[in-house]
Design a protein around this nucleic acid. Structure first.
Lengths: 205, 205
DNA sequence: CCTATTATGGACCGATCGGTACATAACGCA
DNA sequence: TGCGTTATGTACCGATCGGTCCATAATAGG
């Protein structure tokens, strides 16, 4: 009886995420979203409710998508190799130097803190999940004896997550993919298996 | 003859920087700036020209100020100790967990890339200067034999800069000062003097 | 065909944006 | 006192914002 639904939500999320990713939440206007999705205003509000709700849905869509991509590429590895695949998969996402878009989650956390609390919280939660992934890989690596650093696994996971966030800022600064890869390599070299004897001292405070 | 100038530009920069720092460039309206500086609209435009120009001036003011603060605290140290003071001084700036403001330069680079090219470029340049400072300290440390990592000094400086940016994202995410300090300590432990023998392998690609 | 239901896009809304113009108040000096 | 200069606040501007409304187009079943 009714006219069938024509909108492709997945396509809309894809297009919207590109826009939010590159220009941020506030700088992306409703008209921009209409242009890029090809929707009319009526359809847009019928389908998504508001710009804010679309952004929430886009964040979730983005997170699921990139999580699936990373999982796929690191599934066949274990320990440090899996961590490396995990980091590399992230680099692919963020290191397009022409677009300089960084990471939608980091961008959102930075832009929206104190301005859009709910949106900030959502992006923040997704971002924190990454540290847990790092932790899982590092625990495997620790057990396998691949980790030589004289540090707790949780500390290493925290450091990895911070590094990952720094890389996303680097991307936004325009650094090349090679530069980012070099940083990842340096980090992995630092934490990989090294002897524990003869260490001079350990910073504590 | 004339009515004396009452504007305190330094005070205005200070107040404006707090606002831009916490809420970003676009989310800070002209009225917000007028409220916080106590200026009238006429005085504001006579003194600063536009919101954009005020932001540029505020960025520069902020950079000079924080550079001076860091220089002061690391001037009496050399090598790795100086790097540590440098990182700690940055933490003091960004790790107020109640305000979660992160770093004005990083926030601006993220928010304004692709939206306000000139402002982005300005913040980007100031941010890149930090890597040079890290490099200088690390070169001193290398000569003094304090660096044990099997990596080039430039690679370490790049990694330090990336870590520093990651810490600023952490701040925006609401991590506590202690959590940030732990990450700094972990990093310094990683790069400080360790034996070079027996290293398994080195990541290259 | 006709009818019911939904998608569509433009007209329109009030609010807010950054910025300008200007009349007025406050002040130092002669 | 009066003059010259500057600060101040408000009225106002056009543009744009997110969001609502509604007349119209499109498409299914009867």
């Amino acid at each position: 009886m009714p006219r069938p639904i024509e909108i492709n939500r997945d396509h809309a999320f894809h297009k919207a995420s590109e826009l939010f990713w590159r220009r941020g939440y506030r700088a992306t206007s409703l008209n921009d979203l209409l242009d890029v999705t090809g929707m009319g205003k009526g359809s847009f509000y019928a389908a998504f409710g508001s710009k804010k709700k679309l952004f929430e849905a886009t964040l979730t869509w983005y997170h699921k998508r990139s999580t699936a991509a990373r999982r796929k590429s690191s599934d066949n590895h274990r320990g440090l190799a899996a961590l490396r695949e995990f980091l590399d998969a992230t680099l692919i996402d963020i290191s397009d130097v022409k677009r300089r878009r960084g990471c939608l989650l980091v961008n959102s956390v930075i832009e929206l803190e104190g301005v859009e609390p709910e949106l900030h919280r959502l992006a923040n939660n997704y971002l924190k999940a990454l540290e847990q992934r790092c932790l899982a890989y590092l625990e495997e690596a620790r057990v396998a004896g691949e980790v030589g650093a004289d540090l707790g696994t949780a500390e290493l996971a925290a450091l990895s997550a911070t590094l990952l966030q720094g890389l996303r800022v680097d991307s936004r600064m325009g650094h090349s993919r090679e530069a980012l890869k070099q940083r990842v390599n340096a980090f992995l070299t630092l934490i990989s298996n090294t002897p524990q004897t003869n260490r001079n001292h350990r910073y504590t405070s």
